[in-house]
Computed example of a mutant assay.
Amino acid sequence: MASKTPDRQAGKHTLKDREEVAERLLEASLRHSIDPDRELDWDSPFEDGKWFWPPELISLYGTPLWQNMSEERRHRLARVEGAALASIGIWFEIVVMQLLLRHIYDKPVTSKHVRYALTEIADECRHSMMFARFLTKSGTPVYPVSPVTQNLTRIFKSTSNTACSLVFTLLCEEVIDWMQRVTFPDERVQPLVRGVTRVHVIEEARHVRYAREELRRQMDAAGRLELRVTRAVTGELARVFVRSFVNPEVYPDCGVNRRAALRQIRESEHRREVLRKGARRLTDFLEEVGAFDRRGRRLWREAGLL
């Protein structure tokens, strides 16, 4: 039964009742959950001349390397970057599922809050299978995160506090979500890619709401030490995210020099603007709930997210 405790103020902001938030999200899940295996047309061939990712979102767009590429090579880069994002998406979904399970481990098992977390885990399972099926269909390599990131994340997902877990979740969800919202209405893009991004956007909106409401609650209840830890980790997560966002192996796979590509991406104001736009709603929210300190802001600026 949902708690009848009224909403209470957390500084300037109102903390919503946890059970009431979960109940609304469960109702939305009933109305808007999608089975990608049934809803998407997996059998139709890819269309000649269509992009696998909007060109403006490709990491090298607007750089000297991009200007000197043939149109065929640009399309190849779009295809493998799309594969890299699907690969990191699977990695991310698996990490989030483990973080959610840790979060609800000692929560009341009959609560709506726990029930929604399990519903989200079911969503993430479908998303991971959808991305894997897309990778198989696209005929591209799988681009995992680096071994260093893989092992650091193994430690993080086993030891992080709830607030840090939620910051990680929101960082990965909201930047990619912004890119997918640009992608799915874009008629230049392959219909299957648009379908995959549409499914993900619809369902991730609920996940973002759940994570934001819970992060507000965690930050409001955190003691001084937990706040310091959360702010320190928030800063470091920006570097890990941007470094992992596109696997550098995509460049030699397209006949592009990796060092030159990485240097030009670092120097690209267009790329930094894309990342800033993708992170803008999140950075505003993290400022609002107090997840940044001075060092964290500096690290996010250096990463191109602020």
Rank of each mutant, 00 (worst) to 15 (best):
Q264N: 09
V242S: 09
T183F: 03
G223I: 03
V96Y: 08
S165Y: 03
V142K: 03
T110N: 05
F92T: 13
P185V: 09
F184E: 04
V240C: 01
S160G: 11
L170G: 08
P252M: 11
D253V: 06
D48N: 10
E302R: 14
V109Y: 02
V199K: 06
R298Q: 12
S244G: 11
R259E: 15
T110I: 01
V193L: 06
T230D: 11
S33G: 11
R73D: 13
L275V: 06
L306W: 13
Q218K: 00
E174N: 14
Q67C: 01
G304F: 05
R263Q: 12
A86M: 15
L171H: 08
E187P: 00
Q9K: 15
P6D: 14
L26E: 03
T162E: 07
Q150S: 10
N68H: 07
E226C: 11
L152H: 10
Y210F: 15
D43C: 02
V289L: 04
E39Y: 07
W91H: 12
V80Y: 15
K137S: 08
R31Q: 07
R133M: 05
L85G: 04
E23D: 09
F92S: 13
E71I: 10
L282N: 05
E288R: 10
V242P: 07
M179K: 02
V256F: 13
V96D: 11
F46S: 10
D106K: 10
V95K: 04
D17W: 01
D253F: 03
E174P: 08
E23C: 00
E72P: 00
D35F: 06
I121F: 03
R31H: 09
V175R: 07
E302I: 11
W53N: 03
E249P: 01
S268T: 12
R73A: 04
A222H: 08
R280Y: 13
V233C: 04
R294I: 09
L30I: 07
A222M: 14
V142G: 01
E81F: 08
S244F: 07
W91E: 12
N161L: 02
G290E: 04
G290C: 06
G290A: 07
V189F: 11
M97P: 04
F46K: 01
P108Q: 00
Y251L: 05
R194A: 09
D7A: 13
D37N: 00
V80W: 10
R209Q: 12
F156K: 12
I34R: 11
F92D: 14
Y210A: 09
I104Y: 01
L152N: 07
A260S: 15
G304S: 06
R198L: 15
T140E: 13
V233F: 02
V175C: 02
A261H: 06
A117G: 02
R231T: 05
Q264K: 06
E267W: 04
E56F: 10
A122H: 06
R224Q: 12
H200R: 03
P64S: 01
W178L: 00
R206S: 12
V199T: 14
R18W: 01
G296A: 15
V250W: 00
Q150E: 12
H127C: 09
E27N: 05
C172N: 13
F292Q: 03
A117S: 12
P141R: 13
T197R: 04
A28T: 10
L57V: 05
A83G: 14
E249C: 05
